[in-house]
Design a protein around this nucleic acid. Structure first.
Lengths: 305, 305
DNA sequence: TCAATAGTGTCTGTCAGACACTATCGA
DNA sequence: TCGATAGTGTCTGACAGACACTATTGA
């Protein structure tokens, strides 16, 4: 077979050799990092002996020891090695922070605005990892970094809908994100979401209007991940990534509730979740002063009918 | 206010100055490109005078003039400028290929496996643009590049479900993607999707097992974008980005059908789509030999009730 | 006994799937 | 008249929202 030649008469091999010698570093390149949002759900202890613990959505944050944003908290992340897939890079990051491996992880979004890091042009690929509360006892990695879990609370604090020319709609929503660790340190960010229809093209802009203690544009990234979590929990089985092997249906329901931010009806929740779970013959040992609950397992076959 | 100092006693300004002088290019960086998948829906003319034209989903591809993959077809794309947001970069790419501006575009996914480009390490952020058939007459950009529209057809050709240990499921699906231009050039790719549950963690791998005439991993990227299109058309209004300002409900239904790959019932489709459209007093002029259809417009307010 | 959780039964209205039917045009 | 598209009416079963009810435990 005759090798294909380009306009300079080069074979592929010749082209690649010349390319690597002359073309490779012709332009200035941005740096690429991977940020991993690590979520789990944790019990919050309650005084009353008969009451069940409340569930809280938690995210892992790292305290910055150097400029920029010194002393503020950031999502764990780091530079992509030149010989490492970006997915592997995110897994490595997760391992370094938590010593946990073999965990559910998905790519979220890539953030590439010019001014998002004052040091230089950095494009950041964000991943979302969900770990179950079984593994929560695992210590944070042996880096000298301060890594801590923060509870995640998102509140809609303003919601404006406008009519323009009785034809185009503008929606402006203001959200407040609050992160609280077990020392009651509180970080917060206000995020404004504007939805406009211009020339019958819908445009949504999301921007941080205030940030306290959260480094870079990480408030916005966390906000985005919460939207994704809420969406995906409705039509996938990702919630089970947050559960231990055995769990009660009430625990599972509470995980759904904390992510969706609303109460669900037990009867209906059980009917809907039924195909995704397997009833075991084990009973929940913890609950006192009320009827004990049956433990369930995830049914990985649920999509196959 | 006292300026914050890091461990070396530097202020933020001192740190940034030192960083830019010494740290910036410490590590080898990957290159970053943006690829834009440009979709539209086109009429396919029919001989019978009373019949309506068929709708086809089309994607714009560029013929490669140089190594690697010389002579094959690729998604339009290019390097991100160092002083340009990645979203702007995708818009620029779209403008260069189609001369169209102000168009719906969303980020799809970021592809960052090490070996995906034989020239060097390239991380590619893909965007999806939808343009309406009104603009279709616009010529491809004035680049010397050959740019052409290809019809997009995706077929599920194998579907295996396995039980392992009567406990874990494995699903393997084989898809064939076919791209055909108006000279009847046919490009194709076979994509294998494997879904496994290992240690109760669900893992999905997607890989190209065969590629004819489609450069790089672009068959996989197109496949991914089709999944996203199908998903989003069900719960968002993106379909209207593919429509001209005035359209009949049958046209709209055909667009849904070609993207979803299935026939829909007219009565139900009309009931469901009703809140998203506004009936006008215009009638469709084209159709001959049958009842004329009312023209509708998109209702950008539909989400506000 | 009582407070709390576990778990079930059932009514109601909505809506998707399915299909049949009417309306209107041009050759 | 007929072949094609445009558009509507309605039956059926499934299922979400809502609420009430029963079951079981430990202090």
């Amino acid at each position: 077979m005759v090798p294909l030649l380009n306009q300079k008469g080069q074979t592929l091999e010749q082209f690649l050799k010349a390319y690597k010698e002359h073309e490779k570093d012709k332009y200035e390149k941005p740096s690429v990092t991977v940020d991993t949002l690590i979520f789990t759900v944790k019990d919050k202890e309650i005084d009353n002996y008969r009451k069940l613990p409340k569930k809280e959505l938690m995210i892992m944050m790292i305290k910055r020891k150097d400029h920029p944003f010194i002393g503020q908290w950031a999502i764990p992340g780091g530079f992509v090695n030149i010989d490492e897939d970006i997915y592997e890079s995110a897994k490595r990051e997760l391992r370094e922070e938590t010593n946990i491996d073999n965990i559910y992880m998905e790519q979220l979004y890539t953030w590439g605005d010019v001014g998002r890091d004052p040091r230089m042009r950095i494009i950041s690929v964000s991943y979302m990892a969900l770990i179950n509360s079984d593994n929560l006892s695992v210590k944070a990695g042996d880096d000298a970094e301060e890594a801590e879990w923060f509870s995640v609370n998102l509140e809609l604090i303003e919601d404006n809908k406008k009519l323009v020319e009785n034809r185009f709609a503008e929606v402006a929503q203001l959200f407040e994100l609050k992160l609280i660790n077990n020392k009651d340190e509180t970080l917060s960010a206000k995020i404004k979401v504007e939805h406009k229809v211009v020339n019958s093209v819908a445009e949504t802009t999301t921007r941080i209007v205030e940030s306290n203690g959260i480094a870079f544009d990480h408030g916005k990234i966390i906000f985005y991940s919460l939207q994704r979590l809420r969406n995906k929990i409705e039509y996938t089985d990702i919630a089970f990534q947050l559960m231990p092997e055995y769990f009660t249906l009430t625990e599972l329901q509470k995980v759904y509730e904390v992510i969706l931010g609303e109460k669900l009806y037990p009867a209906q929740f059980r009917r809907q979740i039924e195909p995704m779970v397997i009833k075991t013959d084990k009973m929940h040992a913890e609950g006192k002063g009320h009827r004990p609950a049956v433990l369930y397992k995830f049914n990985p076959l649920w999509r196959l009918e």
